[in-house]
Design a binder for these strands. Structure first.
Lengths: 210, 210
DNA sequence: TTTTCAATGTGATAAATATCACCTTTCAAA
DNA sequence: TTTGAAAGGTGATATTTATCACATTGAAAA
């Protein structure tokens, strides 16, 4: 388990008692880069609080296609798993580890209890939902109004913000995240290179623009 | 202001004190069908709880195009306006009255206070966010994975669920909601009519299928 | 070094959607 | 009853994106 100091650093707004409760009931788990943390349709058994690394959240369809929605970083939580005790529903999203990660898994039994007992947990849940909701709005905005070239630019900028100017993704991976085909991404990236926005290389490229 | 009985009917899970607080501080307002309740970029001054009628929530882009996300019904609240005191941000969404409506407007000063004072308000906020988040996920799913014919079908089914089998919308209005053009909608509706799914008439059509 | 395979490049073509032009229909107001 | 405006129909064409086919490249493994 994490030390109290580490918990405070990750979740600075919590009450004292909540740190103790987490320390007592949460399990610190790790997962390898690329591993699936939550599948669409899967029953939710525990809440996930990211400690280290980055998680990617997707919408998933019947055929198994994925559509990237947003990232989760240390100190952030998966919104869908936070209040699932109300509904006892299955996950509507797919969550994957981008990097090797560690996270706190809290059995959902505690969710209702903690909402009652810890005001700071309540605020944390609301803040989480609000932030994820806003990310979703951005994603909808891009998807609904923009063509693929602009969506790709938005996607790359999100990556840059997360991981810096070097994007370590294959064209195929980007195509999967944007629910398009590899050829489309290759051609658009080539165009960006011609415009001097990026520098292409194998398995990665660099964002240069601005 | 609404009577306590009316409030209880709309918001059955609240605490006694919360009904009193709402009765004291909320203002009961009305708006005509079609009127804009909240614009993108507008500063949020009050929270909106729907009392009567239906509200439509949109994503809006720079050129003023609208993209329909979901409906709000009596007893439901606009998520974006619920926790804005944290951020003091501007609205990311557009809200329009579909029918003549009445709603409770609560100055946002009370939001933080009530979160502290009323557990049932806290739960109400979380439930609101969770429900809106789920609606957004559905909208993303349709937008990201489906072609226009399937998106139109999904859209019509949402309308049917809201207002019954007669859809009182022009092709242009539907096209606006789905961010496409009138011609595309006209042709797809014609195809649906040929398939026996709908019966077209001027200014409206009926959903027949199943 | 050579081999091999994933990653990428690219032309050709198909499919979906957008846009333009112009026509017909319907209904309400004059 | 006439008429003008809004709603809807539809062909032609442009644009965007998807799909197919196959060539090239580069890096890791043999």
């Amino acid at each position: 388990m994490l030390s109290k100091e580490e918990l405070i650093k990750l979740f600075p707004d919590w009450e004292k008692g909540l740190y103790d409760a987490v320390a007592e009931h949460a399990e610190l788990r790790t997962a390898k880069a690329g591993s699936i943390l939550l599948k669409k349709g899967q029953n939710i058994k525990s809440t996930m609080l990211v400690v280290e690394g980055t998680v990617k959240l997707f919408q998933e369809n019947e055929e198994g296609s994925e559509y990237f929605m947003y990232h989760l970083n240390p100190g952030e939580a998966c919104a869908v798993t936070l209040v699932c005790n109300y509904h006892l529903e299955q996950s509507q999203v797919l969550a994957k580890a981008v990097t090797d990660i560690s996270y706190l898994a809290i059995p959902i039994e505690f969710m209702d209890k903690w909402l009652n007992e810890y005001k700071s947990w309540h605020y944390f849940v609301i803040r989480t939902y609000r932030n994820r909701y806003e990310e979703l709005l951005k994603t909808i905005h891009e998807t609904a109004f923009k063509n693929m070239d602009e969506r790709l630019e938005f996607y790359i900028k999100r990556q840059v913000q997360q991981f810096g100017n070097t994007i370590k993704l294959t064209h195929q991976e980007i195509a999967n995240d944007l629910n398009t085909s590899r050829e489309v991404i290759s051609r658009l990236l080539k165009k960006m290179e011609n415009n001097g926005w990026i520098a292409l290389s194998r398995n990665s490229f660099d964002w240069i623009k601005k």
